[in-house]
Design a binder for these strands. Structure first.
Lengths: 217, 217
DNA sequence: GTGCAAAGTTGCACGTAGTGTAAATGCGTG
DNA sequence: CACGCATTTACACTACGTGCAACTTTGCAC
């Protein structure tokens, strides 16, 4: 296993860097601190920072990356005969607990003012999309006939988009509220989003696919 | 109006910059040239470049931006009672001609080796997504009941994802081939992608693309 | 423990990105 | 022509990201 001194030190340094980056994000706001600030706060040299991350964004995006890696792990555990949409839903359900969601929620609220996600964060989501594509390809290959690339890519992309949409709506509505009621709403939003996708968005302007859907504005 | 000497000069300079950027992209490959190179090629100063674009990526992404602006324009012309998915499909159909697609296809093939899209390019797609969301919101508001934010965001995001997926598959299959047969395949891919989305990806591993999936105009 | 090799850290130098500022140049109008 | 305004340009400055060559720490054999 990875319990040598070297591994531990590296992990600690890595964690120290993201902690420092988050601290500075909290105190100074996005874009108002430099790599040197992070390095100083973490007690390392500027050069060492770049040995771990390629940018400030990358350091912060490790939060998102961790969450999505977790999600992919859950996703891969789902039975191969389960529909992709349901696998995605179940994987996300497993992560809708306070401890897992908290870092992501804080990162989101702190970076809300900057319109678009950072490059590194988008990279993390895209990596997740590729993983989903790979799993879907594997499941399709097990069945009959040839694998349809369009189907795989469109499906994986849409799943990611809907997952993002659900989280965005939740963050927008609830901010960093991690109460049981709020998390229940997140779960419902994720379920609704996958249901919308599974039903082809057939509902009109007032869909409410699951009766107990959303709403609490 | 926009025909003063100043306006013309500005437009010419802007075009000159993107042309220079594309020339260098062709000759040196992505990432192997600097802002100064572009400025020199375009015959302007480095500082002037930054008066027009915030980065090399942004200069190149103006190609994508132009295409998507065009798409949005078509999209907004669709009747308000038409389903969003069909509006999207029709808008894209209108752009599947050689002259419009060529620049995008070349940009794509030239930047294919770098895995993820540039930040500016993603920004362009995201801007398009927001426009779709806005149109969908407008249409939903015209109907009965309250507007469901989740529905809007999930739908717009999925439409973009499926459009991207169709184009990626086409680019991957046909490279920069702009023959009528190739463009017909692009149209079919776009139709199929929207059909997949509209049917909730219910098809199994072999959705059998060709004739059955199409239906439009 | 001692010695050694591999892994990790650090300082330094270099080229590039992006921005503020003020001077210079070009354009439109009286 | 001369004036007001928009645009371009040179210059300076901060910050990013990387290659490189010490230097320090860790793991391991003896």
């Amino acid at each position: 296993m990875a319990t040598s001194r070297r591994e531990l030190n590296k992990a600690a340094t890595r964690q120290g860097i993201t902690d420092a980056a988050l601290t500075l994000l909290r105190s100074k706001g996005p874009g108002n601190f430099t790599v040197e600030d992070i390095a100083d706060t973490a007690g390392i040299s500027r050069r060492t920072f770049f040995n771990y991350f390629s940018s400030t964004d990358a350091a912060l995006a490790s939060v998102t990356h961790g969450f999505l890696d977790n999600a992919i792990q859950q996703f891969k555990l789902r039975p191969a005969n389960e529909p992709i949409l349901q696998s995605a839903q179940e994987a996300l359900m497993a992560l809708a607990d306070p401890m897992t969601v908290a870092p992501l929620a804080e990162l989101f609220t702190l970076t809300q003012q900057s319109t678009l996600m950072s490059h590194s964060e988008l990279e993390a989501w895209d990596h997740c999309r590729e993983q989903i594509t790979a799993v879907a390809r594997g499941r399709a290959a097990a069945g009959p006939g040839a694998v349809d690339e369009l189907y795989l890519r469109a499906l994986a992309g849409s799943v990611i988009s809907c997952g993002k949409a659900a989280m965005e709506v939740w963050f927008t509505r609830r901010g960093a509220d991690l109460s049981p009621a709020s998390l229940a709403e997140l779960r419902q939003l994720l379920i609704d989003a996958m249901a919308l996708l599974g039903s082809g968005f057939t509902a009109g302007s007032t869909p409410a696919p699951s009766p107990s859907a959303s709403r609490s504005s």
